[in-house]
Write a protein that binds this DNA or RNA. Structure first.
Lengths: 172, 172
DNA sequence: GAATATGCATAGCTGTGCTATATAATTGAC
DNA sequence: GTCAATTATATAGCACAGCTATGCATATTC
């Protein structure tokens, strides 16, 4: 196995190029999806919801890290989500500065409806995928999800049990 | 092969779900990429550039369709691209209302640099992909690109030869 | 040549993202 | 136990990408 360094450099280049193609394809797919669904749904809100559903209630700061946005951005998103009653804020008994953010039933339904409408909107473009192509897409999504989930050292999902049930507005 | 209808419905559901997973993964990947690159580059500008490079000079309206944005959005993007000297506007001799938008060398370089920095930024997260995983991602990107390109009836790339070489600001 | 259609620009809004900074609570040092 | 430093969220204010509605100029059609 000679010239390992050269081989590795080549391989890194190849992987980089593939990643760029994936990002580029993602970028376009996002636009196609936005236009076909009529653009009424917000990716950021749904991303936040699905993070919460996947990992359970967590603090705003943790949510910001998981969702890859700055903390003030997440504060805004959580406010909007709260106004729609898709999440509720639960006081954190261990730290009066913090809140646990939890998805409501309504929020779960909203995400589910979004997934249905997104699937329906994109289906016509992809309906005649071969089984093999469909499999490739499914595996690619799984690979991306796994890598992205693993990208953060630890984060979240460690917070769960410490929260109380005091709703916002109640005496603290 | 009995119950074709039921089977097809099931298959449609499966494909829909896969597509939703792909969109969801894309959405997250976009955020990871934005954060890791330091977020200085704008996806919309680069999407426009790469469309122009792939399909050659075209009108603002065509570019809007290809890039899946509304026409006023594209007008703004083209203005920004022009200010950066990444594109130039060429008068369309066949129609005085229209412009042909063409990428400059500077624009090509900007896209190339973006691709390099994006690849470098994401590589650490994906460096230890197996050859097989890398292949799955590459094929998924190709499938998405092909479908998205095919989604529009015809559009663009039919416009090329009709344009002149009169630069903006020159007598029209 | 007047009416209609088309291509682009402008105005003005919303939402998502950012940084810098404020406020309040917690933690740590002494 | 109090004061300083740190931490969690909120607020302010900005930029940009997206949209719809609409205006303006040029083409096209009858």
């Amino acid at each position: 196995m000679p010239e390992t360094v050269v081989l590795d450099a080549t391989r890194a280049t190849t992987i980089s190029q593939i990643l760029v193609e994936v990002v580029s394809a993602s970028n376009r797919l996002t636009r196609v999806a936005a236009r076909r669904t009529g653009n009424t749904e917000s990716p950021a809100l749904l991303r936040t919801l699905s993070t919460l559903i996947a990992s359970g209630p967590m603090r705003i700061g943790e949510l910001a890290v998981e969702s890859r946005v700055a903390q003030p951005t997440m504060t805004k998103l959580v406010r909007t989500l709260g106004e729609r009653e898709w999440v509720r804020r639960i006081a954190d008994t261990a730290d009066a500065r913090a809140w646990q953010i939890a998805v409501t039933k309504k929020g779960e339904r909203a995400l589910e409806e979004w997934r249905e409408s997104m699937g329906a909107a994109l289906l016509p473009v992809f309906a005649d995928l071969s089984d093999e192509e469909a499999d490739v897409l499914a595996r690619a999504a799984a690979i991306l999800h796994a890598r992205i989930a693993g990208e953060i050292g630890s984060a979240a999902s460690v917070t769960g049990p410490a929260s109380s049930v005091v709703e916002e507005g109640a005496a603290r």
